[in-house]
Nucleic acid binder design. Sequence first.
DNA 1: TTGAAAGCGATACCAT
DNA 2: ATGGTATCGCTTTCAA
Lengths: 340, 340
Amino acid sequence: MPVNSRPPTILDIAEAAGVSKTTVSRVLNGSARVAPETRTRVRDAIARLGFQVNLAARSLRTSRTGLVGLLVPVISIFGLIVESLDGQLAEHGLGVLLTSSRRRDAPRDLDSLEMLVGRGVDALVLAPSDDRSPELARYLRSLRTPMVLLDREVRGVACDAVLVDHAPALLAAVRHLVDDGRQMIGLITRNDRTRPGRELVAGFAAACAAAGLAPSSTHVAEFVDLDQQAAQTGVDTLLDRGVDAIIATGTLALTAGILERLAQHGVGVPSEVSLVTWGHAGPENLETGLPTIAYPVEEVARLTARLVLSRIEGSTATPRVEVTRTVFLPGDVPLHAAVG
Amino acid sequence: MPVNSRPPTILDIAEAAGVSKTTVSRVLNGSARVAPETRTRVRDAIARLGFQVNLAARSLRTSRTGLVGLLVPVISIFGLIVESLDGQLAEHGLGVLLTSSRRRDAPRDLDSLEMLVGRGVDALVLAPSDDRSPELARYLRSLRTPMVLLDREVRGVACDAVLVDHAPALLAAVRHLVDDGRQMIGLITRNDRTRPGRELVAGFAAACAAAGLAPSSTHVAEFVDLDQQAAQTGVDTLLDRGVDAIIATGTLALTAGILERLAQHGVGVPSEVSLVTWGHAGPENLETGLPTIAYPVEEVARLTARLVLSRIEGSTATPRVEVTRTVFLPGDVPLHAAVG
DNA sequence: TTGAAAGCGATACCAT
DNA sequence: ATGGTATCGCTTTCAA
């Protein structure tokens, strides 16, 4: 068998199966109007010649790419969501074109967005790093591409969204701490340029109020990046204000940084200061044993995939907003790290 | 200005600029054979009408997609590399089609790969979760798409690769521990289905030998996934064998799990057991203060991008292998986490 | 320096 | 149920 220099096209298949291009196309697209026997012949030919549709050609004709554009601020953080989304979309023959704004600002978001749109993605899944940017809002409004916002609210843009409600988990966390005798709780959280940042601050304030804590005892330290700097400054600030508990809504790296800083100050956890961490819901993930606010990764991915698929299948229904929530896990085993 | 129902094509531009499609195409592709004045007129028209090339059409004609396929086992772990790669490739107008085999096996790798190839990517960047699979090797051999392996070695496949040398860092780490008085070092590392897993084990053994440690004092605990299970079992096994130092070559989650397990055993760090962790090289990343083996994320991404670009530009040179290395950072501040 | 026309590989309409 | 043909938007000879 000679090595074909050129990959087979539907015309090759048509000839091999003794039918027309049209019929091959029908088989490819699962049209019902094909005789079973013909379908078999075509399928055989496809398998025999190792035919694969040329997606560029199909795309040109149908003006659909089978690609979903994904914009996230930091890939490592959104990794599990991206992964889950990728898996679900792949089941429907959709590919994921990924871009990260690398934890930056609105202009960076726009650049990435334009690249995705320029490639003609069929839908966008967006977690811009600044959902308050007017330029972003204007740009999104100008798009016809269907889109789903990932826990973001962009003013004046009516589109599908998956939102995460942080209030119940914060309420539970604060209750847990208060029941444990804590009276002054501090929050270390992200900046307010995206919805979760704002919701966490608001939800925390509400939770403290509901738990009967004096307003003065709620402290918020906000940082642009949830890195070492955030951990150190956050801990120092909060200790300074006399907190006896900290809720940290960031990555495991933030948690580690906070633990280290507390250790440097000689503060015992949880004896002197309680720590509530942030994690992913799901069996696969390492639990530190600390009380944790768990983010519903799979759920978010599932809801997002569903919305995307429905739009790609052509739904023009009014924008839908799905809401899910973080969950507070009390944590069975407190983290006791021994003194060196 | 009426809203165009249909996005402008080069024909629209051609008419608006009073030239032919051909000329517009020449401008688009930066051909030298265009009069400066003509070029300007065309550029104006492009800007005025908000024209964007239809990549599907271009792709059909040139049989290049401008897409690079990326296969990684776990997105969160490869996040920084993906991000950096994405950024560099974007500068050259290339998009990244991402797939993860979700920490699974060879069949999963193959599925993802076929999807990427089916989409006609111009190049592949691969970190399969099992680089010893014969099926994978056979499949890769059958491909014409240029590819770059990310710290993987696939038998019988001659292609570009970026490899990471772990030996020097391990040597330095072991020396550091021995100088510190440690005599029995354990290693907690990943499975041997990929190159880094094998290299770490081999490098560790060599380092121990070079440091004059008895062979019996080197212990390796291998796990499929570097999660909580790995941390607990690894720590238990190693303590059981009487180690006074542990080198953990996994994510921050593994480190956290190990710290926790040690704490549960009431073992002080570093007083009783020293811990060397694994991290990313670079200023952006949180350092725990513990001695660390740092992975050269940016360097790997840069080398990879360079290899990819060179192939995409048509290089048919003999396969190139770039080698970089992890670096041992002694760590200034040991992690003292206070007892609760 | 510029343009006319062919063609990339599919799909979709209209016949039969 | 099947086939012929125009067409999607661009690049690429080949001529002028």
